[in-house]
């Protein structure tokens, strides 16, 4: 009984909070038709309920999904993190298991039960924002985990921030909005939707414009450069010295 009451209170708070904060959230959910929601319910019951509970309340194997919103489901399932395959320091990405329609059906279902962050509007994902602002915001907010060039980086206890190249704009936005696992949430007060659009613009700029200096060596910085110079640079030079002093004369 106590859990149900707690969930109810939680629902009212988070739902109310989100309704106050972002009108897009509620707009997104109400737009989904009842048939989509029903289809999503079936998929959820078959694939997710074992861990997240039939009423999203969560189990020992997975957290509650109440109030996570459509954005979180779209991100987790759309990037292949969910359904979780095995437990480890961090949910790993696998090939995506569902079609885009199925993903949005589940997202709509989860959102229909309790409001939460919605899937962002396409106008925020066009990559036509201000790259300079995006680059600066990225360095300040994201680079400590993901590296300045989005090459990824290590966190504690085997967790890591993944590389960001090749991630769809919508998933970048949702990641900021929902803060998966060890990533912090960047809500709209923190980074406005415009700021998020700028960050996406910068990441897409990096993707579309390979380094002017030549091959990037994984954008890993001095470690990769040092290894390269020792193995290939000095390797080549030493090979030449051996060739020059070889006894043919």
């Amino acid at each position: 009984m106590a859990t149900v009451a707690l969930i109810a209170i939680g629902l009212i708070f988070t739902g109310g909070g989100y309704a106050l904060f972002s009108s897009t959230a509620t707009a997104g959910t109400s737009a989904s038709s009842q048939t989509t929601i029903d289809e999503g319910k079936k998929l959820f019951a078959a694939n997710c309920a074992s861990c997240h509970g039939a009423a999203l309340q969560g189990t020992a194997a997975g957290p509650s999904l109440i109030g996570v919103g459509a954005a979180s489901v779209d991100f987790q399932v759309g990037t292949g993190r969910m359904p979780l395959a095995m437990s480890g320091p961090q949910a790993m990405q696998k090939p995506v298991q569902f079609s885009p329609d199925q993903v949005s059906a589940m997202a709509a279902y989860v959102a229909s039960l309790s409001p939460g962050p919605a899937i962002p509007d396409a106008s925020l994902l066009d990559g036509k924002g201000d790259a300079t602002n995006g680059a600066e915001l990225f360095r300040i907010n994201c680079a400590m985990c993901h590296n300045v060039a989005g090459a990824g980086g290590a966190l504690t206890e085997g967790k890591f921030a993944p590389p960001l190249t090749g991630v769809a704009s919508v998933h970048i936005y949702e990641a900021m909005l929902t803060g998966p696992q060890n990533m912090p949430v960047f809500n709209n007060a923190n980074l406005t939707p415009e700021d998020k659009r700028d960050i996406i613009t910068y990441l897409k700029y990096l993707e579309a414009n390979p380094s002017p200096g030549g091959y990037e060596l994984g954008s890993l910085g001095p470690v990769a450069e040092g290894l390269f110079v020792w193995i290939f640079g000095l390797g080549a030079i030493v090979a030449v010295t051996i060739w020059l002093t070889a006894k043919s004369n």
Binding site: R139, I140, M144, V148, A151, G153, L220
Partner: peptide
């Protein structure tokens, strides 16, 4: 890397070898 600013630090910040 962008211009220096004392607040951000990037993952993978290392000196030359």
């Amino acid at each position: 890397y962008g211009p220096y600013d004392p607040s951000p630090v990037s993952a993978g910040t290392q000196p030359d070898w």
